[in-house]
Simulated assay, not measured.
Amino acid sequence: MADTAQQVATDDILLREDRDGIAWLTLNRPGAFNSLSTELMTCIQDELARLADDASIRVIVIAGSGPGFCAGHDLREVRGNQRNAPFLKAMLAQCSTMMQTIVNHPKPVIARVHGIATAAGCQLVASCDLAIAEDGSRFGTPGVNIGLFCHTPMVALSRNVSRKHAMEMLLTGEMVDADDAIRFGLINRAVPLADLDEAVMTLAKRIASKSSYTLKIGKRAFYEQLQQPTLGEAYAYASEVMLENLAAHDAGEGIQAFIDKRDPVWEDR
């Protein structure tokens, strides 16, 4: 695949660059550590909706500009609306919808993390399917330190790391380093900052080389089987999805290519 890049116009607070079938969405509020204002969340939500139907894009990367990945909600905006219950309710609903959109998105989403990822920023990392971080990055849910427990970040965090690790992060508000984030299961791996873009791109290209139909049906099944109440129901659900997958064109092509000892030619169906 040729190394091509295309800039796509978005609001200045969210940048998009398409490169080799991979869309890079960069949070661009560096002076505020890319905190998730309602305006920025609207831009992310809108771009994710556009990408869902963009056949030229196979993988999405979410990154941050400036000194850190994302510091969570915009506390100046929160403080200015602390007595405005309708605004706060709408803001939390907007954030929850955005995080669920990432999980339910038909395309794999990778977090490219540098600096810090705290509170809703840590929630964003946990909501992405995969995460690659710089080895000096730090993660935390420090809301308890300002009298505001990280209730909504807790949802994504507790679904990615063990209960006791999640509770330690939530109850102490202390930061964890990249090594602990790997050990906890919050990120996949950490690399030096100079190698971060290459590591993310290598992973994204590897995923982008697969059938987009297979990726879509597999990602959906992964999260759905986790919600099944029993092991037997999870297997029953997964078996139904596998039957659906086996009937697809790309499954037949892939199996035949394996038999013929050649590379498959995907039609994404």
Rank of each mutant, 00 (worst) to 15 (best):
S127N: 03
G140E: 11
A181F: 05
S65W: 07
V176C: 00
V113L: 00
A120E: 15
V176H: 03
P153G: 09
N160L: 15
Q100A: 09
L124G: 04
A181Y: 02
C128S: 02
I182D: 03
T97E: 11
G68M: 12
L170I: 14
M154D: 13
A156K: 14
D179C: 05
R138P: 00
N145Y: 06
M98C: 11
G140K: 12
G80H: 02
E77I: 00
I102E: 01
V155R: 12
A111E: 06
R112L: 03
S158I: 12
T97Q: 10
D180M: 07
T97K: 11
Q82F: 15
D179R: 03
T152H: 12
C95L: 06
D135A: 11
V109C: 02
M91Q: 01
H105R: 02
D74A: 00
V155H: 14
A63Y: 08
V103H: 08
F69M: 00
N81Y: 01
V103K: 12
P106C: 03
A126T: 05
S65V: 04
I116D: 05
L92K: 00
Q123S: 11
R163Y: 14
P106E: 00
R138W: 07
A93H: 05
G173C: 08
I62R: 10
E174P: 01
F149E: 13
A119V: 07
Q94T: 00
P108Y: 05
G143Y: 00
N84G: 03
D74W: 06
H105T: 00
V113G: 03
T172Y: 10
F149Q: 13
A126P: 00
D179F: 01
S127K: 01
Q82D: 07
S162W: 13
V155P: 08
V78A: 04
D129V: 04
S158A: 14
R159V: 09
D129C: 05
L171R: 07
H114T: 10
R83T: 05
I146D: 12
D180K: 10
F149Y: 15
Q100G: 07
K164P: 09
V176Y: 05
G64Q: 15
G143A: 09
G64A: 15
F149V: 13
I102L: 11
G68F: 04
V103Y: 07
A131G: 07
K89I: 08
C150P: 12
A63W: 10
F139A: 02
M99Q: 10
S137D: 05
A166V: 08
S65H: 09
S162Y: 13
P86D: 10
G72I: 07
F149S: 13
H151P: 00
P142K: 11
S127E: 01
N104K: 06
N104M: 02
N84R: 12
R159Q: 15
A166S: 15
M98A: 11
L130E: 04
G136N: 10
A71H: 06
I116L: 09
N160T: 15
A93V: 04
K89N: 08
K164Q: 15
P86T: 07
G64P: 14
A63Q: 12
I132E: 06
G140T: 12
A117V: 02
